[in-house]
């Protein structure tokens, strides 16, 4: 009797359990995965798959027409020991990131603070300052920039009023990169809007209390505004730095795709493009991409790790 009931009980329980298990999965998990399906296909097909393939290709010689040849770490070794253009592009990108990001953020913060004083016409100014951010990535603006900083361009027209004869900024190796830095700083609008939103979160009574205690404007800025704004500064800095590392179009248009004069505008992304789609050295370009990933990864990890020492969070 006992044995029999056990015998028949177990499969019965199984029978009862298995549809309900499946039903549960179908009920609980299936809708989520169905909605996620397009993203999942994209994630595996266009992100994870390509990342792994790209890592593999970075250890090969690959010209797109014949199958990849395994060459071990040769690409990386050549890059670091025997490729002056790699170092040139690295230097250009670093200078660009190191100068354009802080300048852009400083400008964005300064203007945001001016605007945050309850000015009349704030929406108008905000819109005007935002416009370059919106248009800036366009090829049209890069073309305009090439014109502004040409020998007979707008900047030199302006300088000639004071009797200064300016050089052709675009085609002089000392200045060409700076024209691109100015172009990046010109687009300070979107971090400015984020700063403005952050400034509005700061309780005004803090300033009142501080000024009652006799703290001057500068002290208020250093002791209240800046600390409370550090999460926003942090956010803006990360986003803008990653964007700066990825910048491509302006350098491409302004130098006609060459990175000249004397590689002074050879952004890392531009060099990668030349290797991949100019010379079809896909293996080497993949290695370049992985070094860029490592660079961005190290930067991001470093920012997040150090953030607890300087980013101020409530609670």
């Amino acid at each position: 009797m006992t044995a029999r009931s056990l015998e028949s009980g177990a499969p019965a329980r199984e029978r009862a359990a298995s549809p309900s298990l499946w039903a549960r999965i179908w009920q609980n998990d299936a809708p989520g995965y169905l909605f996620l399906l397009p993203w999942l296909i994209g994630f595996f097909g266009l992100t994870i798959g390509p990342i792994i393939t790209s890592l593999y290709l970075s250890f090969t010689d690959f010209d797109l027409l014949t199958s990849p040849d395994w060459v071990g770490a040769d690409n990386y070794i050549r890059m670091f020991t025997n490729d002056p253009k790699f170092w040139a592009s690295m230097r250009v990108t670093m200078v660009f990131v190191i100068f354009s990001v802080p300048l852009k953020l400083a400008f964005a913060l300064a203007v945001a603070m001016l605007l945050n004083r309850g000015m009349r016409g704030l929406p108008l100014y905000r819109a005007l300052f935002y416009l370059p951010s919106l248009l800036g990535a366009s090829v049209a603006i890069a073309i305009l920039w090439r014109q502004i900083f040409a020998r007979d361009g707008l900047v030199n027209d302006f300088l000639s009023i004071f009797g200064i004869v300016g050089p052709s900024w675009i085609s002089s190796p000392q200045y060409s990169l700076w024209t691109l830095i100015i172009l990046a700083v010109w687009q300070f609008g979107s971090p400015m809007i984020i700063f403005l939103a952050g400034l509005r979160q700061i309780p005004q009574d803090m300033y009142e209390a501080a000024s009652l205690d006799g703290a001057g404007k500068w002290r208020q800025f250093v002791k209240i505004t800046l600390p409370l704004l550090t999460p926003v500064v942090f956010f803006n800095a990360i986003i803008q730095t990653i964007e700066a590392f990825k910048s491509f179009t302006p350098a491409f248009i302004i130098s006609g795709g060459t990175g000249n004069p004397i590689n002074s505008t050879l952004f890392y992304t531009l060099y990668l493009y030349q290797e991949a789609f100019g010379f079809f050295r896909m293996g080497y370009a993949s290695a370049l991409a992985w070094v860029l990933l490592a660079l961005v990864g190290v930067f991001t990890a470093f920012s997040f790790l150090t953030s607890k020492y300087w980013v101020h969070y409530d609670d």
């Binding site: 097909g45 992100t47 790209s54 797109l64 990825k246 990668l272 860029l292 990864g297 991001t300």
Partner: peptide
């Protein structure tokens, strides 16, 4: 995973995507 892809420079997936 989705948040990670936000940080990813597109160059890393560029060449295999092109091949595909």
């Amino acid at each position: 995973m989705m948040l990670m892809t936000l940080m990813l420079p597109y160059q890393v997936t560029l060449i295999p995507q092109y091949v595909l």
